[in-house]
Amino acid sequence: MEPNLIVQKNPKEPIKDKEKIYSLFLGIGFTILIACIGFGLSIIPKLGYIGPFACAILVSVLYRQIFGYPEHIRIGIQFSSKYFLRFAIVLYGLKLNMNVIFNQGFMIMIKSVITVLFSFIVLMLIAKLIKADLNLSLLLSIGTGICGAAAIAAISPIIKAKEEDTAMGIGIIALVGTIFSIIYPLLFPFLHLSNAEYGTWAGLSLHEIANVALAAAPAGENALTFALLSKLSRVFLLIPVSFLFILWMNKKGIKKETEVKFTFPWFLIGFILMSFLGSYFIGELIETKELNIPIDFLTSFLLTMAMTGLGLNINAKELRMKAIRPFIAILITSLFLSIFAFFCF
C-alpha cells in the first residue's frame, strides 16, 4: 500500500505549486489594479487631497465588505503588503538628505525631537483618557511625530502590529493630515509670520511630506524650502526611533518566554543605506527630473499596492468601533501640536 500512496501523492504536489504561483501573480496583479484605481481617484480634485494611499485603502475596504476577502489570491496580496511595503520604505530613504540636515545645524533637530516626544506623550495620554485602542494609538503617535504613513509602515513590522491596525492608522493619519494641510494656507494671511517662519511651522507640525508641501507651497519657494528642511529633520528621526523600538521589543521578548523571537527589520538597514547613498554619492543624479520623478512614482505606487493588502484586512464594523476614539485622539493631538509649534518654535 505504501508505494501506491506515494505514487498517488506526488502528482498532486506540482498542482499545488501551480496554484500557489497563480495565487501569487494574480494577487500581485490585483494589488496593481487597486493601486491604479487609487491613483486614478486621487486625480479627482476633492479626493486628491487625501492621496492615492487613502484612496486605495478605501477601495480595498469597500471591496472586502461587498465581495469578501479574495482567498484564492491571498498569497499574492500578502506578498504585496509585506515585501513591496518594505521595498518602498527602502526607496523612501532616498528622500532623506542627511547632508542638508547636518549642514543646517542641530537646532532644528532638537525641535524635531521635541515634536516627536510631544506627539507621542500627548496622543498616548489622550488615548488612555478616552480609552482608545492603545496599539492603534501608538502607531498614530509615531506617524504624527515623524512622517505620517511612511513612519507607520516602517514601525508596524517592528512592533508586530496587526495589518488591520496599520491600515486604519494610515487611513486616519492621511485624513487628519489632509484636513490640517488645507487649513494652514487659509490661516497664513492672518498669522503675521514671515515665509520662512510659516514654512518652519508647517514642517514641524504637519504629518506627511505631501501635507507639508501642500500647505507650504502657496506661501512661496522660500516657505517651501524651510518647510521641507524642517520635515526632513523629523524623517531622519525615523532611524533612531526604529532602533529604540527594536530594543524595546527585544526586552519585551526576554520577559515573555512564550513570545515569538524578534526578527530584525533588515529593510531599515536598506533605508539607512539609501539615505547615505542619496545624500553623499548620487544626490545630484537623483535630483534630476529624469530620475526623481520615476523614483517618487515607484515609491508611491509600491506603497499604494501594499495599502491594498492592508485595506482588505479591515472589517467595516470593527473599523467603526475601533477607529473613532483613536481618530479623536489624533485630531486633538494634531491641534495641540500646531498650537505648540506655533508659539514655541
Rank of each mutant, 00 (worst) to 15 (best):
T200G: 09
F180E: 04
L186F: 05
F180T: 09
I155E: 02
G169T: 09
A150G: 08
V176H: 05
A132S: 13
G148A: 04
G169R: 05
L186P: 00
S205H: 05
I126C: 05
S194E: 12
A132W: 05
V176G: 10
S112V: 10
S137E: 08
S194Y: 00
L139H: 07
S137W: 02
A149L: 01
S137F: 02
A202N: 06
T144R: 07
S156M: 01
A127W: 05
K162F: 03
I126L: 11
G148W: 03
K131M: 00
T178S: 15
L129I: 13
L138E: 09
V116H: 12
F188C: 03
N195E: 05
K128M: 05
I130H: 10
L117I: 12
A196H: 06
V176Y: 10
A127H: 11
A149V: 15
A153I: 07
I158T: 15
D133P: 11
T200Y: 02
L134T: 14
T115G: 15
E197N: 04
I142S: 11
I130T: 11
H207F: 01
T166R: 14
H207E: 05
P185Q: 03
L140E: 06
L117V: 15
L175A: 13
E197S: 08
L204V: 04
K131W: 01
T166D: 13
S156Y: 01
A161W: 08
S181N: 10
S205D: 13
S156K: 05
T200D: 00
L138M: 12
G203L: 00
A154Q: 10
L187Q: 11
L140T: 12
L140S: 06
A151F: 06
A127Y: 06
G148E: 04
G177W: 03
I179A: 14
S141W: 02
F180Y: 13
S181P: 08
V116Q: 12
L187A: 13
M124K: 12
S194P: 08
G171R: 14
M168E: 04
A150I: 06
L136S: 06
T166L: 12
K128N: 12
I183C: 07
P185W: 07
A196Q: 14
E197Q: 08
F180G: 09
A149T: 06
T166Q: 13
K128G: 11
N195P: 01
